[in-house]
């Protein structure tokens, strides 16, 4: 067996050198071919060393990887992810980025979300909505920009009032303050919750108290509410205007998931008109 290992190691070294040489001269075709061969050799080496079967269930390199469709296992995991995200967003009460959603999931629901699980969520939800509109009690959907396109990297809940999902110039800040207040209100004994609140509090004037000690939720709420009062009026006005525009210009799908481009807006408007 060790002979075989030695031989594999030599081959792996040779292949690696080949790949790097090819990459240096940007010969991507050769590099890709060699890389494939290399992965094969490395898998063989792993299995020989660790006694793992050569094409186990963890095998991600082969063509039968995750794209092969949704097994039952994946389906159930998807539901869990979806629910966890819904819980977190409901707690926050405002559109949020995956990073914050993951942190809230950890701190308050003992969840183990990873942000890469959230990347395709919006697309999956849109597909599901298109297949059977309003078939689910809620959808995880987009927040909409002033062009009514989906805002980059934000998730929202379909059952919220439309204005809450609109992103005016002040909205990112307003939403952050809203989220900070929500987190402060829910603060529990979990050190992860305290850490999250500390991180948020230090970015609110008067909210932090140095870097040490658990944050004082009352103080964070007060500070965040104080700043919120400065922005609230204009932000509410901006959002309402946008929401009106969205209602009049967008069809159901686009209202939830956003219009991809200007031309989409036009098409959606027409679709709506035709319905």
């Amino acid at each position: 067996m060790s002979d075989r290992l030695d031989e594999l190691e030599r081959r792996i070294d040779g292949l690696r050198a080949g790949v790097r040489k090819a990459m240096r001269v940007r010969d991507t075709v050769t590099a890709r071919a060699l890389r494939a061969e290399l992965r094969g050799a490395e898998r063989a080496w792993d299995s020989l060393v660790g006694g793992v079967p050569e094409s186990g269930p963890d095998d991600q390199g082969g063509p039968t990887g995750r794209d092969a469709g949704s097994s039952r296992g994946e389906e159930s995991r998807l539901v869990t992810v979806r629910e966890q995200v819904h819980q977190a967003l409901t707690l926050l009460g405002a559109p949020a980025q995956p990073r914050l959603i993951v942190a809230v999931g950890e701190a308050f629901f003992g969840g183990a979300l990873r942000s890469n699980q959230l990347t395709s969520l919006r697309r999956d939800e849109e597909r599901s909505f298109r297949a059977s509109p309003y078939g689910r009690p809620y959808y995880l959907c987009a927040a909409l920009t002033d062009r009514l396109s989906p805002a980059r990297g934000l998730l929202a809940v379909s059952t919220w009032p439309l204005a809450r999902r609109m992103v005016g110039p002040l909205s990112p800040r307003v939403d952050f303050l809203t989220c900070a207040i929500a987190v402060a209100r829910q603060l529990n004994d979990d050190p992860r919750a305290a850490r999250l609140l500390t991180r948020m509090a230090r970015n609110i004037p008067g909210g932090g108290q140095g870097d040490l000690g658990p944050p004082d939720p009352g103080r964070v709420i007060e500070a965040a509410a104080g700043e919120l009062a400065v922005h609230a009026e204009r932000d509410t006005r901006d959002r309402d205007t946008l929401a009106k525009r969205a209602t009049s210009q967008l069809g159901d799908t686009a209202r939830l998931f956003g219009a991809a481009t200007l031309s989409t807006v036009a098409r959606d408007t027409i679709t709506k008109g035709g319905r």
């Binding site: 980025q97 909205s171 990112p172 800040r173 952050f176 004037p205």
Partner: peptide, 27 residues
């Protein structure tokens, strides 16, 4: 840039003395 540029706004308030009201964000 996370959370409506929360960290960035803190820093801009520190180094530029940006007033509280100025938070408008354009992506």
């Amino acid at each position: 840039k996370a959370d409506g540029c929360a960290e960035l706004l803190r820093m801009l308030r520190e180094v530029l003395g940006l007033p509280i009201a100025e938070v408008a964000y354009h992506d």
